[in-house]
């Protein structure tokens, strides 16, 4: 048996979408490279995170590992099984949780859902019932076990989705944005559960929440436009920008970004507009030295500075430095 639980080598996925007229006649062909020669090895029992903005290729990678999407080239093995050639073995050892409450049957109760999926994973009826109750107990859902999913809250449905991924006790878990859209309390509970109760599992987690990746992951792969830009522990990644300062400036009015980027010492700069307020983030080797020049330039542009802060680097700063984009873009 191989030492790595998940081995991804040179994995590439190209989507070609064709716009057609009257169903048949092709009008336009578009080629999108969702994954570009991705390499990733995840040892057993480790929790790896894929961190990147929307459209970075996280879900495509998860779907290829879950055997839902075929790669264009390259290989991916899970516990030594090839996702292409041994897809049914792969499916038997992975649990997939897509952060989508629609992935269970709303017309069935929590227990019925879990028993049904248990049967698909080859549990006997009694095993499925026993396992369903065990998981419902762990998720504090036993009282609602016979309630139809449509009558439960969003958080409760997400608990069923999560329990469904665990029904066959898989050694590998693929968690695709599991806390997206969840209320903060439940998201915290879920993260706590993953950290404390699933220590023995190999987990690949995709997220665009930095604090989630920071809190849970042994190692994080930063992914952008289908490429893994960097891989390391959260600490290692942040060490790479330890020498840099991150300036967070709140402005009234849009700054001239190109002029800011042209200042000596500025490594990266992005701006985001929310409710008429512009948040400028600038990375530089020596933030304190840059501050004066930057504030003067903003003043010359007639822009009012409302707030100014020099922050410790975060994963977002690492991402910004590597890609020129912010994760939450």
């Amino acid at each position: 048996m191989t030492k790595s639980a998940i081995e991804i080598k040179n994995l590439t996925k190209v989507f070609i979408s064709t716009r057609r007229r009257a169903i048949i006649v092709p009008v336009e062909r578009k080629r999108v490279e969702a994954l570009k020669s991705v390499d990733l090895d995840i040892p057993r029992g480790r929790l790896y995170g894929l961190l990147g903005p929307n459209g970075a290729g996280k879900t495509t990678l998860i779907k290829i590992l879950a055997t839902l999407v075929l790669p264009t080239s390259g290989t991916a093995n899970i516990m030594g099984y090839d996702v292409l050639g041994d897809s049914s073995y792969v499916r038997a050892i992975i649990g997939v949780c897509q952060g989508n409450e629609r992935s269970i049957y709303w017309k069935l109760s929590a227990r019925e859902n879990l028993v049904f999926f248990g049967r698909l994973y080859r549990l006997t009826q009694s095993e499925a019932k026993e396992r369903a109750d065990e998981l419902l107990g762990r998720m504090d859902l036993l009282e609602k076990a016979d309630e139809k999913a449509e009558n439960l809250s969003h958080g409760m449905r997400m608990k069923i989705v999560f329990a469904r991924a665990l029904i066959h006790d898989p050694p590998i878990l693929l968690l695709d944005e599991p806390t997206q859209g969840l209320d903060p309390t439940f998201a915290t509970d879920l993260r706590q559960y993953v950290r404390d109760k699933l220590k023995d599992k190999t987990i690949l987690l995709t997220t665009h929440y930095m604090h989630e990746a920071d809190m849970l992951c042994d190692r994080i792969a930063l992914i952008n436009e289908g490429e893994i830009k960097s891989l390391g522990t959260p600490h290692e990644l942040k060490e790479r920008v330890r020498d840099y300062d991150s300036l967070h400036i709140t402005l009234r009015g849009a700054p001239h970004l190109e002029k800011i980027r042209a200042i000596d010492d500025v490594l990266a700069a992005t701006v985001r507009e929310r409710n008429g307020v512009h948040e400028l983030v600038v990375t530089a080797h020596d933030g304190y030295d840059l501050t004066r020049r930057l504030l003067n330039m903003l003043h010359d542009q007639g822009i009012r500075v409302e707030q100014f802060e020099v922050k410790e680097p975060t994963l977002d700063d690492v991402f910004l430095q590597l890609t020129g984009r912010r994760i939450e873009d």
Binding site: A66, L68, S88, R102, S103, L120
Partner: peptide, 10 residues
């Protein structure tokens, strides 16, 4: 929305 989930089972 359950088709993908079904297809992740063995």
């Amino acid at each position: 929305g359950t088709l993908e989930t079904l297809f992740t089972t063995p």
